[in-house]
Design a binder for these strands. Structure first.
Lengths: 214, 214
DNA sequence: GTCTATATCCGGATAGAC
DNA sequence: GTCTATCCGGATATAGAC
Protein backbone atom coordinates (compact mmCIF):
# COMPACT_ATOMS: atom_id res chain seq x y z
CA UNK A 1 0.00 0.00 0.00
CA UNK A 2 2.63 2.43 1.09
CA UNK A 3 4.74 1.15 -1.73
CA UNK A 4 1.96 1.62 -4.19
CA UNK A 5 1.44 5.19 -3.13
CA UNK A 6 5.15 5.84 -3.32
CA UNK A 7 5.28 4.38 -6.80
CA UNK A 8 2.34 6.41 -7.90
CA UNK A 9 3.69 9.65 -6.56
CA UNK A 10 7.07 8.85 -8.02
CA UNK A 11 5.52 8.17 -11.39
CA UNK A 12 3.51 11.33 -11.22
CA UNK A 13 6.48 13.36 -10.22
CA UNK A 14 8.58 11.89 -12.99
CA UNK A 15 5.80 12.61 -15.36
CA UNK A 16 5.57 16.22 -14.34
CA UNK A 17 9.29 16.53 -14.45
CA UNK A 18 9.37 15.19 -17.97
CA UNK A 19 6.70 17.63 -18.97
CA UNK A 20 8.46 20.55 -17.35
CA UNK A 21 11.76 19.54 -18.88
CA UNK A 22 10.27 19.20 -22.36
CA UNK A 23 8.50 22.52 -22.12
CA UNK A 24 11.72 24.20 -21.06
CA UNK A 25 13.67 22.59 -23.88
CA UNK A 26 11.06 23.61 -26.43
CA UNK A 27 10.90 27.19 -25.19
CA UNK A 28 14.66 27.51 -25.28
CA UNK A 29 14.92 26.04 -28.76
CA UNK A 30 12.03 28.14 -30.00
CA UNK A 31 13.70 31.27 -28.71
CA UNK A 32 16.82 30.56 -30.73
CA UNK A 33 15.00 29.60 -33.91
CA UNK A 34 12.61 32.55 -33.75
CA UNK A 35 15.54 34.91 -33.28
CA UNK A 36 17.42 33.45 -36.20
CA UNK A 37 14.52 33.23 -38.67
CA UNK A 38 11.64 35.33 -37.44
CA UNK A 39 8.13 34.19 -36.63
CA UNK A 40 7.23 33.06 -40.14
CA UNK A 41 10.70 31.89 -41.06
CA UNK A 42 10.96 29.58 -38.09
CA UNK A 43 9.73 26.04 -38.69
CA UNK A 44 8.29 23.74 -36.08
CA UNK A 45 10.61 21.07 -37.46
CA UNK A 46 13.70 23.15 -36.73
CA UNK A 47 12.47 23.91 -33.24
CA UNK A 48 11.70 20.25 -32.61
CA UNK A 49 15.10 19.15 -33.91
CA UNK A 50 16.95 21.68 -31.78
CA UNK A 51 14.98 20.63 -28.71
CA UNK A 52 15.59 16.96 -29.52
CA UNK A 53 11.88 16.23 -29.55
CA UNK A 54 9.60 14.95 -32.33
CA UNK A 55 7.70 17.62 -34.14
CA UNK A 56 4.32 16.20 -33.21
CA UNK A 57 5.19 16.51 -29.55
CA UNK A 58 5.90 20.17 -29.90
CA UNK A 59 2.35 20.50 -31.13
CA UNK A 60 1.23 18.38 -28.23
CA UNK A 61 2.72 20.79 -25.69
CA UNK A 62 2.01 24.04 -27.53
CA UNK A 63 -0.87 23.63 -29.89
CA UNK A 64 0.22 26.05 -32.58
CA UNK A 65 3.24 28.02 -33.67
CA UNK A 66 1.55 31.26 -32.67
CA UNK A 67 0.86 29.99 -29.17
CA UNK A 68 4.44 28.86 -28.86
CA UNK A 69 5.64 32.26 -30.01
CA UNK A 70 3.47 34.05 -27.51
CA UNK A 71 4.68 31.71 -24.78
CA UNK A 72 8.25 32.64 -25.62
CA UNK A 73 7.47 36.36 -25.61
CA UNK A 74 5.66 36.10 -22.33
CA UNK A 75 8.50 34.25 -20.64
CA UNK A 76 10.85 36.99 -21.79
CA UNK A 77 8.79 39.96 -20.80
CA UNK A 78 8.23 38.76 -17.25
CA UNK A 79 11.53 39.96 -15.88
CA UNK A 80 11.57 42.92 -18.17
CA UNK A 81 10.92 45.95 -16.07
CA UNK A 82 13.08 45.00 -13.17
CA UNK A 83 15.75 47.40 -12.00
CA UNK A 84 15.37 50.95 -10.87
CA UNK A 85 12.90 49.33 -8.49
CA UNK A 86 13.75 50.96 -5.24
CA UNK A 87 14.46 54.49 -6.21
CA UNK A 88 12.75 57.38 -4.51
CA UNK A 89 12.83 61.11 -4.42
CA UNK A 90 15.60 60.94 -1.85
CA UNK A 91 17.78 58.33 -3.54
CA UNK A 92 21.18 59.29 -4.85
CA UNK A 93 20.80 59.73 -8.63
CA UNK A 94 24.39 58.85 -9.38
CA UNK A 95 24.22 55.60 -7.48
CA UNK A 96 20.74 54.70 -8.72
CA UNK A 97 21.53 55.31 -12.35
CA UNK A 98 24.81 53.42 -12.22
CA UNK A 99 23.08 50.42 -10.67
CA UNK A 100 20.36 50.57 -13.28
CA UNK A 101 22.80 50.76 -16.16
CA UNK A 102 24.79 47.82 -14.81
CA UNK A 103 21.61 45.77 -14.47
CA UNK A 104 20.59 46.51 -18.02
CA UNK A 105 24.05 45.71 -19.34
CA UNK A 106 24.10 42.40 -17.48
CA UNK A 107 20.76 41.54 -18.98
CA UNK A 108 21.98 42.46 -22.44
CA UNK A 109 25.13 40.38 -22.19
CA UNK A 110 23.43 37.41 -20.52
CA UNK A 111 20.28 37.17 -22.62
CA UNK A 112 20.98 38.62 -26.02
CA UNK A 113 18.28 36.52 -27.64
CA UNK A 114 15.64 37.98 -25.40
CA UNK A 115 16.54 41.48 -26.45
CA UNK A 116 16.73 40.56 -30.09
CA UNK A 117 13.33 38.94 -30.09
CA UNK A 118 11.86 41.85 -28.22
CA UNK A 119 13.43 44.37 -30.59
CA UNK A 120 12.18 42.67 -33.73
CA UNK A 121 8.74 42.43 -32.23
CA UNK A 122 8.70 46.15 -31.48
CA UNK A 123 10.13 47.08 -34.87
CA UNK A 124 7.38 45.12 -36.59
CA UNK A 125 4.84 47.20 -34.73
CA UNK A 126 4.59 44.85 -31.74
CA UNK A 127 1.55 42.99 -33.04
CA UNK A 128 1.73 40.41 -30.26
CA UNK A 129 3.28 42.45 -27.49
CA UNK A 130 1.02 45.42 -27.54
CA UNK A 131 -1.85 44.18 -25.44
CA UNK A 132 0.57 42.15 -23.39
CA UNK A 133 2.65 44.95 -22.00
CA UNK A 134 2.16 48.40 -23.41
CA UNK A 135 0.14 49.73 -20.52
CA UNK A 136 2.40 48.05 -17.97
CA UNK A 137 5.43 49.63 -19.56
CA UNK A 138 3.82 53.05 -19.77
CA UNK A 139 2.97 52.94 -16.11
CA UNK A 140 6.48 51.84 -15.20
CA UNK A 141 8.00 54.61 -17.29
CA UNK A 142 5.68 57.16 -15.80
CA UNK A 143 6.50 56.21 -12.22
CA UNK A 144 10.22 56.38 -12.88
CA UNK A 145 9.88 59.61 -14.78
CA UNK A 146 8.19 61.14 -11.80
CA UNK A 147 11.12 60.24 -9.57
CA UNK A 148 13.69 61.58 -12.00
CA UNK A 149 11.63 64.71 -12.38
CA UNK A 150 11.70 65.17 -8.60
CA UNK A 151 15.49 64.85 -8.69
CA UNK A 152 15.49 67.62 -11.24
CA UNK A 153 13.26 69.79 -9.09
CA UNK A 154 15.62 69.24 -6.18
CA UNK A 155 18.55 70.31 -8.35
CA UNK A 156 20.18 66.89 -8.09
CA UNK A 157 20.29 66.30 -11.83
CA UNK A 158 20.20 68.52 -14.89
CA UNK A 159 17.81 66.41 -16.97
CA UNK A 160 14.30 67.72 -17.26
CA UNK A 161 13.06 65.20 -19.82
CA UNK A 162 13.13 61.95 -17.84
CA UNK A 163 11.35 59.92 -20.47
CA UNK A 164 14.10 60.51 -22.96
CA UNK A 165 16.74 59.66 -20.41
CA UNK A 166 15.04 56.32 -19.81
CA UNK A 167 14.82 55.70 -23.54
CA UNK A 168 18.49 56.54 -23.94
CA UNK A 169 19.57 54.15 -21.22
CA UNK A 170 17.40 51.35 -22.55
CA UNK A 171 18.71 51.91 -26.03
CA UNK A 172 22.41 52.20 -25.35
CA UNK A 173 22.50 49.11 -23.14
CA UNK A 174 20.24 46.83 -25.16
CA UNK A 175 22.13 47.66 -28.31
CA UNK A 176 25.05 45.52 -27.27
CA UNK A 177 22.70 42.54 -27.36
CA UNK A 178 20.66 43.40 -30.43
CA UNK A 179 23.59 44.33 -32.65
CA UNK A 180 26.14 41.96 -31.15
CA UNK A 181 27.11 40.62 -34.57
CA UNK A 182 27.85 44.07 -35.88
CA UNK A 183 29.51 45.40 -32.74
CA UNK A 184 31.67 42.32 -32.27
CA UNK A 185 32.68 42.77 -35.84
CA UNK A 186 33.75 46.34 -35.09
CA UNK A 187 35.54 45.14 -31.96
CA UNK A 188 37.26 42.45 -34.00
CA UNK A 189 36.01 39.72 -31.67
CA UNK A 190 33.97 36.54 -31.89
CA UNK A 191 32.23 36.97 -28.55
CA UNK A 192 32.24 39.49 -25.74
CA UNK A 193 34.79 38.58 -23.10
CA UNK A 194 35.05 40.08 -19.63
CA UNK A 195 37.39 42.76 -20.92
CA UNK A 196 34.82 43.90 -23.46
CA UNK A 197 32.04 44.00 -20.92
CA UNK A 198 34.19 46.03 -18.58
CA UNK A 199 35.16 48.34 -21.39
CA UNK A 200 31.53 48.95 -22.30
CA UNK A 201 30.48 49.67 -18.73
CA UNK A 202 33.42 51.97 -18.20
CA UNK A 203 32.53 53.93 -21.26
CA UNK A 204 28.79 54.04 -20.84
CA UNK A 205 28.39 54.81 -17.15
CA UNK A 206 30.60 57.90 -16.92
CA UNK A 207 29.28 59.08 -20.27
CA UNK A 208 25.66 58.95 -19.20
CA UNK A 209 26.38 60.40 -15.78
CA UNK A 210 28.23 63.29 -17.38
CA UNK A 211 25.31 63.69 -19.76
CA UNK A 212 23.07 64.02 -16.72
CA UNK A 213 25.39 66.61 -15.24
CA UNK A 214 26.50 64.28 -12.45
CA UNK B 1 9.49 60.97 -90.96
CA UNK B 2 10.11 63.44 -88.21
CA UNK B 3 6.73 62.52 -86.87
CA UNK B 4 7.54 58.83 -86.92
CA UNK B 5 10.74 59.35 -85.00
CA UNK B 6 8.96 61.50 -82.51
CA UNK B 7 6.32 58.85 -82.04
CA UNK B 8 8.89 56.14 -81.65
CA UNK B 9 10.93 58.04 -79.12
CA UNK B 10 7.77 59.02 -77.32
CA UNK B 11 6.66 55.40 -77.16
CA UNK B 12 10.06 54.31 -75.97
CA UNK B 13 10.20 56.99 -73.37
CA UNK B 14 6.73 56.14 -72.13
CA UNK B 15 7.76 52.55 -71.97
CA UNK B 16 10.83 53.29 -69.93
CA UNK B 17 8.84 55.58 -67.74
CA UNK B 18 6.31 52.89 -67.06
CA UNK B 19 9.05 50.47 -66.18
CA UNK B 20 10.78 52.97 -63.90
CA UNK B 21 7.50 53.87 -62.29
CA UNK B 22 6.56 50.25 -61.69
CA UNK B 23 9.96 49.42 -60.26
CA UNK B 24 9.73 52.35 -57.91
CA UNK B 25 6.23 51.40 -56.80
CA UNK B 26 7.28 47.80 -56.18
CA UNK B 27 10.38 48.79 -54.22
CA UNK B 28 8.38 51.13 -52.07
CA UNK B 29 5.66 48.60 -51.41
CA UNK B 30 8.20 45.86 -50.74
CA UNK B 31 9.95 48.05 -48.21
CA UNK B 32 6.75 48.49 -46.22
CA UNK B 33 5.71 44.85 -46.38
CA UNK B 34 9.16 43.55 -45.49
CA UNK B 35 9.29 45.90 -42.51
CA UNK B 36 5.91 44.80 -41.26
CA UNK B 37 6.32 41.04 -41.75
CA UNK B 38 9.97 40.22 -42.25
CA UNK B 39 11.56 38.53 -45.24
CA UNK B 40 9.75 35.23 -44.87
CA UNK B 41 6.52 36.70 -43.57
CA UNK B 42 6.13 39.05 -46.49
CA UNK B 43 4.15 37.66 -49.41
CA UNK B 44 4.59 38.62 -53.02
CA UNK B 45 0.83 38.94 -53.18
CA UNK B 46 0.80 41.58 -50.44
CA UNK B 47 3.60 43.50 -52.12
CA UNK B 48 1.84 43.35 -55.47
CA UNK B 49 -1.46 44.49 -53.97
CA UNK B 50 0.16 47.42 -52.18
CA UNK B 51 1.96 48.44 -55.35
CA UNK B 52 -1.25 48.08 -57.35
CA UNK B 53 0.37 45.62 -59.73
CA UNK B 54 -0.44 41.98 -60.53
CA UNK B 55 1.69 39.48 -58.69
CA UNK B 56 3.08 37.98 -61.88
CA UNK B 57 4.43 41.37 -62.89
CA UNK B 58 6.36 41.70 -59.67
CA UNK B 59 8.06 38.47 -60.68
CA UNK B 60 8.58 39.88 -64.12
CA UNK B 61 10.52 42.89 -62.79
CA UNK B 62 12.31 41.15 -59.92
CA UNK B 63 12.62 37.45 -60.58
CA UNK B 64 12.40 36.20 -57.01
CA UNK B 65 11.52 37.39 -53.56
CA UNK B 66 15.14 37.19 -52.50
CA UNK B 67 16.27 39.36 -55.39
CA UNK B 68 13.58 41.88 -54.55
CA UNK B 69 14.66 41.90 -50.93
CA UNK B 70 18.29 42.46 -51.86
CA UNK B 71 17.24 45.24 -54.22
CA UNK B 72 15.44 46.94 -51.37
CA UNK B 73 18.40 46.56 -49.04
CA UNK B 74 20.79 47.87 -51.63
CA UNK B 75 18.70 50.95 -52.33
CA UNK B 76 18.69 51.67 -48.61
CA UNK B 77 22.33 51.13 -47.86
CA UNK B 78 23.53 53.48 -50.56
CA UNK B 79 23.20 56.67 -48.56
CA UNK B 80 24.08 54.98 -45.33
CA UNK B 81 27.46 56.18 -44.30
CA UNK B 82 27.00 59.78 -45.18
CA UNK B 83 27.60 62.43 -42.55
CA UNK B 84 30.72 63.11 -40.58
CA UNK B 85 32.23 63.29 -44.06
CA UNK B 86 34.39 66.32 -43.85
CA UNK B 87 35.82 66.11 -40.41
CA UNK B 88 39.53 66.35 -39.81
CA UNK B 89 41.95 66.54 -36.99
CA UNK B 90 41.50 70.30 -36.90
CA UNK B 91 37.70 70.40 -37.07
CA UNK B 92 35.73 71.65 -34.11
CA UNK B 93 34.38 68.56 -32.30
CA UNK B 94 31.36 70.32 -30.91
CA UNK B 95 30.28 71.61 -34.28
CA UNK B 96 31.08 68.36 -36.10
CA UNK B 97 29.26 66.14 -33.66
CA UNK B 98 26.20 68.34 -33.57
CA UNK B 99 25.98 68.33 -37.33
CA UNK B 100 26.39 64.58 -37.40
CA UNK B 101 23.69 64.01 -34.82
CA UNK B 102 21.27 66.26 -36.65
CA UNK B 103 21.93 64.43 -39.88
CA UNK B 104 21.28 61.07 -38.27
CA UNK B 105 18.10 62.31 -36.62
CA UNK B 106 16.82 63.71 -39.89
CA UNK B 107 17.46 60.38 -41.52
CA UNK B 108 15.68 58.55 -38.70
CA UNK B 109 12.62 60.76 -38.85
CA UNK B 110 12.45 60.85 -42.65
CA UNK B 111 13.10 57.19 -43.43
CA UNK B 112 11.99 55.11 -40.48
CA UNK B 113 11.40 52.06 -42.65
CA UNK B 114 14.97 52.08 -43.86
CA UNK B 115 16.26 51.98 -40.33
CA UNK B 116 13.81 49.30 -39.30
CA UNK B 117 14.72 47.05 -42.16
CA UNK B 118 18.40 47.60 -41.52
CA UNK B 119 18.01 46.87 -37.83
CA UNK B 120 16.10 43.63 -38.33
CA UNK B 121 18.67 42.54 -40.83
CA UNK B 122 21.51 43.17 -38.39
CA UNK B 123 19.67 41.55 -35.49
CA UNK B 124 19.19 38.42 -37.57
CA UNK B 125 22.93 38.26 -38.10
CA UNK B 126 22.92 40.32 -41.28
CA UNK B 127 22.84 37.31 -43.63
CA UNK B 128 22.33 39.47 -46.68
CA UNK B 129 24.07 42.65 -45.62
CA UNK B 130 27.31 41.14 -44.51
CA UNK B 131 29.10 40.85 -47.81
CA UNK B 132 27.34 43.96 -49.01
CA UNK B 133 28.67 46.41 -46.49
CA UNK B 134 30.50 45.07 -43.48
CA UNK B 135 33.97 45.88 -44.70
CA UNK B 136 32.85 49.27 -45.99
CA UNK B 137 31.35 50.08 -42.62
CA UNK B 138 34.40 48.91 -40.71
CA UNK B 139 36.62 51.12 -42.81
CA UNK B 140 34.32 54.08 -42.33
CA UNK B 141 34.24 53.54 -38.58
CA UNK B 142 37.99 53.19 -38.45
CA UNK B 143 38.62 56.41 -40.32
CA UNK B 144 36.28 58.36 -38.11
CA UNK B 145 37.65 56.75 -34.99
CA UNK B 146 41.09 57.93 -35.95
CA UNK B 147 39.89 61.50 -36.21
CA UNK B 148 38.11 61.39 -32.87
CA UNK B 149 41.17 59.82 -31.34
CA UNK B 150 43.25 62.72 -32.62
CA UNK B 151 40.80 65.13 -30.99
CA UNK B 152 41.37 63.26 -27.78
CA UNK B 153 45.14 63.45 -28.17
CA UNK B 154 44.82 67.19 -28.71
CA UNK B 155 42.76 67.47 -25.55
CA UNK B 156 39.73 68.70 -27.44
CA UNK B 157 37.45 65.93 -26.19
CA UNK B 158 37.47 63.59 -23.21
CA UNK B 159 36.47 60.43 -25.05
CA UNK B 160 39.22 57.92 -25.64
CA UNK B 161 37.03 55.13 -27.01
CA UNK B 162 35.83 56.62 -30.28
CA UNK B 163 34.24 53.43 -31.54
CA UNK B 164 31.82 53.35 -28.66
CA UNK B 165 30.98 56.99 -29.15
CA UNK B 166 30.08 56.28 -32.75
CA UNK B 167 27.97 53.30 -31.69
CA UNK B 168 26.20 55.42 -29.10
CA UNK B 169 25.34 58.14 -31.59
CA UNK B 170 24.11 55.64 -34.16
CA UNK B 171 22.04 53.89 -31.58
CA UNK B 172 20.42 56.82 -29.86
CA UNK B 173 19.42 58.49 -33.11
CA UNK B 174 18.25 55.45 -35.04
CA UNK B 175 16.17 54.31 -32.11
CA UNK B 176 13.58 56.98 -32.78
CA UNK B 177 12.96 55.29 -36.11
CA UNK B 178 13.22 51.65 -35.12
CA UNK B 179 11.04 51.90 -32.02
CA UNK B 180 8.74 54.65 -33.22
CA UNK B 181 5.65 52.67 -32.27
CA UNK B 182 6.83 52.24 -28.72
CA UNK B 183 8.26 55.73 -28.30
CA UNK B 184 5.23 57.43 -29.79
CA UNK B 185 3.19 55.41 -27.37
CA UNK B 186 5.27 56.75 -24.50
CA UNK B 187 4.97 60.26 -25.92
CA UNK B 188 1.22 59.80 -26.22
CA UNK B 189 1.29 60.69 -29.90
CA UNK B 190 0.29 59.11 -33.20
CA UNK B 191 3.19 60.51 -35.20
CA UNK B 192 6.20 62.70 -34.53
CA UNK B 193 5.39 66.34 -35.12
CA UNK B 194 7.90 69.18 -35.39
CA UNK B 195 7.68 69.78 -31.65
CA UNK B 196 8.69 66.20 -30.93
CA UNK B 197 11.60 66.32 -33.32
CA UNK B 198 12.83 69.52 -31.79
CA UNK B 199 12.42 68.10 -28.31
CA UNK B 200 14.47 65.04 -29.23
CA UNK B 201 17.27 67.07 -30.77
CA UNK B 202 17.35 69.44 -27.84
CA UNK B 203 17.67 66.57 -25.44
CA UNK B 204 20.10 64.44 -27.36
CA UNK B 205 22.63 66.99 -28.61
CA UNK B 206 23.49 68.67 -25.30
CA UNK B 207 23.41 65.29 -23.56
CA UNK B 208 25.94 63.73 -25.89
CA UNK B 209 28.12 66.82 -25.97
CA UNK B 210 28.17 66.87 -22.16
CA UNK B 211 28.97 63.17 -22.24
CA UNK B 212 31.96 63.99 -24.41
CA UNK B 213 33.03 66.70 -21.99
CA UNK B 214 32.23 69.47 -24.43
C1' DG C 1 2.60 10.63 -23.63
C1' DT C 2 5.11 9.43 -27.90
C1' DC C 3 5.78 9.22 -32.75
C1' DT C 4 4.82 8.02 -37.90
C1' DA C 5 2.22 9.00 -41.64
C1' DT C 6 -0.71 12.05 -43.86
C1' DA C 7 -4.21 15.68 -44.85
C1' DT C 8 -4.42 20.35 -45.98
C1' DC C 9 -3.14 24.78 -47.09
C1' DC C 10 -0.43 28.56 -48.58
C1' DG C 11 2.74 30.98 -51.23
C1' DG C 12 6.58 31.33 -54.71
C1' DA C 13 7.18 30.80 -59.21
C1' DT C 14 5.93 29.90 -64.14
C1' DA C 15 3.36 28.85 -68.49
C1' DG C 16 1.15 30.70 -71.94
C1' DA C 17 -2.76 33.57 -73.87
C1' DC C 18 -3.38 38.29 -74.96
C1' DG D 1 4.78 44.01 -71.28
C1' DT D 2 0.55 42.37 -68.92
C1' DC D 3 -2.23 39.11 -66.49
C1' DT D 4 -4.89 34.58 -65.53
C1' DA D 5 -4.57 30.01 -64.32
C1' DT D 6 -1.85 26.61 -62.48
C1' DC D 7 1.97 23.86 -60.68
C1' DC D 8 4.49 22.32 -56.86
C1' DG D 9 7.30 22.47 -52.73
C1' DG D 10 7.18 23.08 -48.08
C1' DA D 11 5.21 23.79 -43.62
C1' DT D 12 1.38 23.56 -40.18
C1' DA D 13 -1.36 20.68 -38.00
C1' DT D 14 -3.69 16.28 -37.02
C1' DA D 15 -5.10 11.33 -37.07
C1' DG D 16 -4.33 7.31 -35.13
C1' DA D 17 -1.21 3.33 -33.89
C1' DC D 18 1.70 2.23 -30.10
Amino acid sequence: MAKLVTDESKNTRTHQEIRAENERAILKAAEAVFVAHGLKGATMQAIADLAGIPKANVHYYYQSKKKLYIAVLTSIVEDWNTGLEDIHEDSDPKQSLETFIRLKLDSAFNHPNHHKLFAVEVINGAPYLHQLMTTKMNQWAERKSAVIKSWYDQGKISINDPLQLLILIWTTTQRYAEFDTEILNLFGKDAYDDEDKKRVAEFLIPFILRGCGL
